[in-house]
Design a protein around this nucleic acid. Structure first.
Lengths: 412, 412
DNA sequence: GCAAGTTTGTCATCTTCTGCGACAAACGTC
DNA sequence: GACGTTTGTCGCAGAAGATGACAAACTTGC
């Protein structure tokens, strides 16, 4: 019947039925509780615009599904019948978050509402970074974490952050130079190793850190955010309209490989003059007269020198500031964010070079795009990718609570 | 049936009621007809997943609202009762599109479905670029265009594209260097001059060209698109998830001012080594030994030389290609688009340097992000911004057909 | 300690909108 | 011209939120 048409659909072509309404309203309430914490029914009425009866029925359904509990409000002194407070139940609804970093491995159980219930992080030597060893370690850690959780707990999803380029369409790792991984179907393999039917979603760790900052960090509530994370390599996450920009296959946000100095030094990606070659840990250390692979200890020493006013350290930081500003200016012109968040090494360095970075941005970014941009260091330290992974794993439940629960329970 | 998967919506805190469902379904049908052209009721049933009765009622309402007409289908030889074909009524539902370019002014009436019903473009001398003169000219052109339209026509919205930085939050032009404008409340002033209560929406012309390419040009249906438009200046439009990225205040997409050569030549924006200084018309002409402000004629001559194999022209194009590739590689790493569209001068030059540009992208973009990226020249030539402006103006009607019509008719 | 005022949960009923199924209309085929 | 197929139409059912009346639970004031 259908004459061949564009396989693409411009608008989300899908009819809406009554049950869609229910699902959307349940999702709205659960999101509200997950992101803004416990709220009384009357607060929910005010925030959603729904009526008392509708809220009553909706919250009732969430309670019945064991996602939410209702308790009498602590009297706050105002007149009128007290409104029961609805709160997410973290102990019974968790996601497992995994962070595959360069030299460590983290696993956490995060409860609905964003509470970290248990977490564990292990350093790992070079010989444990292979895919199989990583999966074995994760399985062991997950086992320990789960053993410590409440018996009635449900795992709603598993989110994984990996230092590398992740294909979001199939949860595979395309390439992770720091791990030596290449085209690994990591999501599928981990899911099989865990023996679960719960979905495993994999994403780039910088993207997840950005998500975490927007959900629960310094950028909470901001809708247009540029997150740049730098250590040895430099990555980033872009948030637009409050949601991550993934790009066609999930590779968006690789800001570390924007050419800022096309005749500069070679980058391990094969190009030359990538931003990463100018602001990465190696460049910073080298400029201060240190070995480029001195690691975290060398950075600590450098910053201590800067505190002490050692000229070599200050000079190195000044150059770092210039290149940091140059790259940020370009990205500000491209994205017009309301906030720029710097994580990792960059977040540590930024307080030392605050003025110089902003000056460089002023010099190079268009006044209109630059106006109102706030630049800050990350607030979430090293756990940001893990928190982001948990949020990613919560997403299906938040989008369609009862439908997702049904799917999980039937599949197990 | 498949509820549109909308990941990551941070609580659009608003309850959904029954009437929202009707509005959403009307919007879905109208979008379908506007973007994919006439469709039989049974086709609409198949595409939306709604039932025959629902489609019947919904289309009936659109017909009653004079947005859509129904006609007997031309018999196509298949058995069964023929399904009436619903089609948008362009003659009765139009938006006015205005394009404020550097040396010309365009106005068009675009009918529902995207048909250009009337259009007019005037060249204008330097002394007519002032704001008042521009508004006077637009008002006169709109008068002429409207006089030629059907009597029963409704103007559903007015969209304006301006060569300059436009603040989308208040429809003002922050700065338009080519016009000498600075902080002009252009939307408000034009609306007053036109004496209309219909909303006037203003946007950057490159952003609108990008929108046009995604809606009705080479990128139709693509969801992640990078559009780069270059003449004297270089601008761009970013499309993610099928929709434009505006940034915090509407200034996103200023790719022309990404620093690609920080120690390069000064840019009129005050920075140095902006991409624009390397790939703009001026740089291209200068490298070929011509005056940097030779304009379109000089570019024609340059391309003719290239056709003839003149070394100076070929060399200039090779350098242009290199810098074009460098900048695109960076943006591909940042956005991971599925398609890159080049417009204006860049669209004309690209066929000459296709291989060199792609080679430079291969050299500098990460293989993962680069894979599957198609680079093409724009298909819509000079009218792209105007088509985009029309689409922008249609948006409210497409999002809530009856509600917007009601608003328009009561305010007039 | 009790009445009044205020706020909010609950319940029955109404409204809106879509799904479902039966029937009829309009087409092609044999 | 009978038959099969496809599709519009119409009545009815089901789902979900709105409305409004009433009751419950709290504070305040005396």
């Amino acid at each position: 019947m259908s004459t061949a048409r564009t396989p693409f659909t411009l608008a989300p072509v899908s009819g809406v039925r009554s049950e869609t309404v229910r699902s959307a309203n349940l999702a709205t309430i659960l999101r509200e509780l997950h992101f803004h914490g416990p709220a009384s029914r009357s607060e929910l009425v005010a925030r959603t615009g729904l009526t008392r009866s509708a809220i009553g029925a909706l919250v009732g359904e969430l309670v019945k599904a064991d996602l939410v509990s209702e308790q009498r409000a602590a009297s706050d002194g105002s007149p009128g019948r007290p409104s029961p407070v609805a709160a997410p139940i973290p102990e019974r609804n968790v996601t497992l978050a995994v962070d595959v970093a360069v030299d460590s491995l983290g696993v956490a159980a995060v409860g609905l509402g964003g509470v970290v219930l248990r977490s564990e992080r292990i350093d790992r030597p070079r010989e444990r970074v292979a895919v199989d060893a990583t999966i074995d370690d994760i399985v062991a850690m997950v086992g320990r974490i789960e053993a410590a959780l409440d018996p009635g707990v449900r795992v709603l999803g598993i989110g994984v952050g990996v230092v590398g380029l992740v294909n979001r369409t199939d949860n595979s790792v395309s390439i992770a130079p720091n791990l030596g991984w290449h085209d690994v179907a990591f999501g599928d393999r981990l899911q099989r190793a865990l023996g679960r039917k719960v979905d495993v979603v994999v994403s780039n760790d910088a993207d997840l850190a950005a998500l975490a900052e927007v959900r629960r960090g310094v950028a909470t509530g901001a809708r247009e955010v540029l997150y740049v994370w730098g250590e040895v390599g430099v990555g980033g996450g872009l948030i637009s309209r409050g949601e991550p920009i993934t790009g066609a296959a999930g590779f968006a946000g690789e800001v570390g490989h924007v050419p800022v100095n096309p005749d500069g030094r070679p980058c391990r990606c094969g190009s030359t003059g990538c931003w990463e070659t100018e602001i990465g840990e190696g460049a910073l250390l080298e400029r201060s007269g240190r070995s480029p692979d001195g690691g975290r200890d060398a950075v600590d020493a450098l910053l201590a020198d800067a505190d002490a006013g050692v000229p070599a350290a200050l000079d190195a930081l000044a150059v770092e500031a210039r290149w940091l500003g140059i790259g940020l200016a370009g990205l500000v012109n491209v994205m017009n964010p309301s906030m720029v968040v710097l994580g990792g090494l960059l977040g540590r360095v930024f307080p030392y070079v605050h003025d110089e970075v902003l000056a460089e941005i002023d010099r190079r970014a268009l006044a209109s795009a630059r106006r109102g941009v706030v630049v800050v260091s990350s607030a979430l330290a090293g756990d940001a990718p893990m928190l982001g992974a948990a949020e990613l794993a919560f997403e299906p439940v938040l989008a369609d609570p009862l439908g997702t629960l049904r799917k999980i329970s039937t599949r197990r």
